[in-house]
Design a protein around this nucleic acid. Structure first.
Lengths: 340, 340
DNA sequence: CTGAAAGCGCTAACAT
DNA sequence: ATGTTAGCGCTTTCAG
């Protein structure tokens, strides 16, 4: 059904020369006569000749396709990272195939094998929420397919990563809460096995220590990052005899969910509860009050992940690298209060 | 650098049979001896043999890749449509390559040619905001590559589309505004050439007519759909001597922007101004007050678009189809007011 | 029942 | 300076 596109053979027979001559002329091989080269190039232009990537791929054993797996497509965080990846890879002549793991390990595994079967030239991944095994990524490594993780990472000893300094950001927010009068600071976070969860929790604890607040076990809640489990967590917190007066979310989405609950309870933000999140979603400045959040350099995260992949593809020796990018704490109304 | 994957040749030489025998056995060709078939299949399994899609593609002149072009990845509307497309195509054994036109015609054209060069087997598109020419899509048709538009469409005579009934939804919101006391209903919309803009405007006008309100020219504002131009539009509306008391946005994003401006002016929603949008983004229930919006069956839009593509790929005759899906008006606090 | 060979589009080593 | 050929991995006649 699809119309056949013009091939080297077509051009060659039209000009009465050999296929290889056309092939060489098109890449300015010095051996080919200048005049002939010109003629061939003109015809190729006219006929709108584009090399068949399938044929090239078969020959070179590469598809020029990079796989990208994200937990979810619908958040600004991931989609702007993807756009960073795209910007970098496109100008290097690569295509990207995006898959969403929908925050599940099963889907993630499926995506990895699917992409591997497609013979991708590289894979960029942000782990799913419950991704707690690494066999599928081992497989990627076994096939010598370049692999890069960003944000949520694993196998750090062997695989290159692009991350931010979660520890210091979580610490900064915690002390910022304190400076704004909070004395009972809670933290809703995600599954324990995720690096970002561990690091942000560590920062939270460091922050508490720095301002001399005790760590209260019931103020630290692990969720599965779903809206429902975040809502449950916040309800539990609000029902505590000693209700917290500040809440740090492991991301903005968790906080958006929390805001609904908090308002439903008739509590005021920031008067009753200071709020801050991570990743500075677009809607942080749409919700009321505007949400304090850690802005990740999303576009740069994407670009850097892409660069790491390209490096690994081009250079033989795959040296493991870890790139730590700077974030910015955007302080907004949700965390600002008269000091007590 | 990448490790060679096992091929038919590998399997054949390991078993001392011909490549073609292995090939046939793997697809249960009746000619091949049952025992041999079994043996070959077992080995293939063991060696983890996966047919090389590049070789298959070259042979069959197809990539099993479907291109998808959306104006923007970061909105729930598009990402959930994509997930619908993915669900349908994946189980049909197709991969999807997503590109973002970033709402510009230039990028859209670039994406189309890029994907065409990749030799995609089909293309699913939602037009960019300023996509007002069709040469690049003509090219797709020229190459006999199946094409489907959704939501924002063009070339409707020749190309299959998946849309919603924008006219009646816009009319319904307009009369709903009226029922809630609004008498000066404004509409911020997009570029005139877009079908959704024309249709929603038509519905708005029909709604006004139905309730007997006159059409005021200054209440209908065309923007380029950017946050900035929406903000400018709302500021102009608010500064009108006869400030509107209801506002219909061509989408939720426009309304989110408007909400910031309205609040900055010290006006109350819904007391001073009723609000409603299109597409029912996730954040419609996060903003304060919750936003009334038309919920599109996003997942279904995606699935249907994918199905149309598959149909066109499978059947020879590419009959043009238009699928109109039902929407639901989600009425929330932003448009509810005591009647005057 | 199984093997050999051609060909999908392209490149590169090897002729001429 | 240009042509010939082999081969990337696979399917599919055509032979045996």
């Amino acid at each position: 059904m699809k119309k056949k596109r013009v091939t080297l053979k077509d051009l060659a027979s039209e000009l009465g020369v050999a296929i290889s001559t056309v092939s060489r002329a098109l890449k300015d091989h010095p051996d080919i006569d200048k005049v002939l080269t010109k003629k061939i190039k003109t015809l190729a232009q006219q006929r709108n000749y584009i090399p068949n990537p399938l044929a090239m791929g078969l020959l070179r054993q590469q598809t020029r396709v990079i796989g990208v797996i994200v937990p979810d497509l619908a958040t600004y965080f991931f989609s702007s990272i993807i756009s960073g990846i795209e910007d970098e890879l496109q100008q290097a002549g690569y295509y990207i195939v995006i898959s969403s793991s929908k925050e599940t390990l099963e889907k993630e595994i499926e995506c990895v094998y699917n992409l591997l079967n497609l013979r991708i030239d590289g894979l960029i991944v942000c782990l799913a929420q419950n991704s707690n095994q690494t066999d599928h990524f081992r497989k990627v490594l076994d096939h010598d397919v370049p692999l890069v993780f960003f944000d949520r990472v694993c196998l750090e000893k062997e695989v290159s990563t692009v991350v931010v300094d979660n520890v210091s950001m979580a610490k900064d927010i915690t002390t910022h809460f304190f400076a704004n009068g909070a004395r009972k600071i809670a933290h809703i976070t995600g599954p324990k096995h995720l690096n970002i969860v561990q690091e942000r929790t560590e920062g939270y604890l460091k922050g508490l220590a720095e301002v001399g607040l005790p760590f209260e076990k019931e103020y630290l809640i692990h969720t599965d990052l779903s809206t429902e489990s975040a809502a449950l967590a916040i309800r539990n917190l609000l029902n505590l005899p000693q209700r917290p007066d500040a809440l740090l979310g492991v991301n903005d989405t968790v906080i958006f969910g929390a805001m609904k609950e908090i308002k439903q309870c008739g509590l005021a933000i920031p008067d009753d509860l200071l709020l801050a999140g991570f990743s500075d979603e677009f809607h942080a400045t749409v919700v009321e009050p505007n949400l304090t959040s850690v802005a990740h350099p999303t576009h740069d995260i994407g670009r850097n992940a892409a660069k790491l992949i390209l490096e690994q593809i081009e250079e033989e020796k795959a040296i493991q690298k870890k790139i730590v990018l700077n974030t910015a704490l955007h302080i907004r109304a949700s965390s600002l209060r008269q000091k007590k």
